[in-house]
Amino acid sequence: MGMLLSANAQWVLFSTLILGMASGMIGCLAYWKRQSLMSDALSHAALPGVVIGFWLIGTKNMPVMIGGAAISALLGALMIQWIRSSSRIKEDTAMGMILSVFFGLGIMMLTIVNRFAGGNQSGLDSFIFGQAASMVRKDVYTMLVLAAIVILVVSLAFKEWKLFLFDPDFARGLGLSRRLMDGIYLAVLVMVIVIGIQAVGVILMAALLIIPAVSARYWTHSFKWMVILSAIFGGGSGMIGTLISTLGIGWPTGPFIVLASSVLFVVSLVFGVEKGLLTKALQIRLQKRELRYAAASGAKGPQRGGEAG
């Protein structure tokens, strides 16, 4: 645990924390837009952009690679949209195709770049599984700024997001442009994905967006609390995963972060207050007992039995 003492390591830890928070928040939006797997497709689609960004500059330059990733992820999103709207291919098929074809293209280019470039590209492979420990101070700053922007966008326009997700018709009635909101949503989603790739890698980035939101769903019915809880779960698993991955040499960060969030998910699944398995089992037991009482004490029962349901 000597790593905890170095200042750079603290920055890395802090940045995975804030990345987890940002992705937890956006994940809630994606969950209610029923686009959880879209994030998976987009993060795979970002790979060619990362490699091209590296190719153009010749070294690992974070802003350029983030730019490339954003462009290629957006391109992927547009193509999914295009295929879906102008042919009879369904959305899930379009996502699967874009995901795998873009990823294949990325691997093709990665192989070529690896052959040409010298030892300078060592960090490039880590984009597949993430290696938070390989980040330098400047990368961490970039990540922090972007993640902070994302968190601000979600929290400042919180009321508008809520309307946009749950009552689009009413939102339109109030003069909220659906197209604008869709655009901002996509931009923010892509932003989270491309900054997360560095820490978690393209394959597992989707987990950071999906799992905290699904876990938070077990604790509350309020959207506000769901976003807050999801941010806490995401941030927590980001930190725990990063810490664990520093224990071994060359352990990738991404899988450990995902595993941490899966553990949180299982805990939520069992103990969650609103929809957890334990709560449900207790409720059913309570109901059964009340019914039995009602049956025993005669006609007084039905009101109480109905209440518990």
């Binding site: 969950y31 959880s36 797997l37 994030s39 998976d40 394959i203 597992l204 989707a206 987990a207 999906i210 799992i211 939101a213 699904v214 991404g254 899988p255 450990f256 995902v258 595993l259 899966s262 998910f265």
Partner: peptide, 12 residues
């Protein structure tokens, strides 16, 4: 979401 949770966890 169920697909997303299951496969990322098992893959990790």
């Amino acid at each position: 979401a169920a697909i997303g949770v299951v496969f990322t966890s098992l893959f990790a």
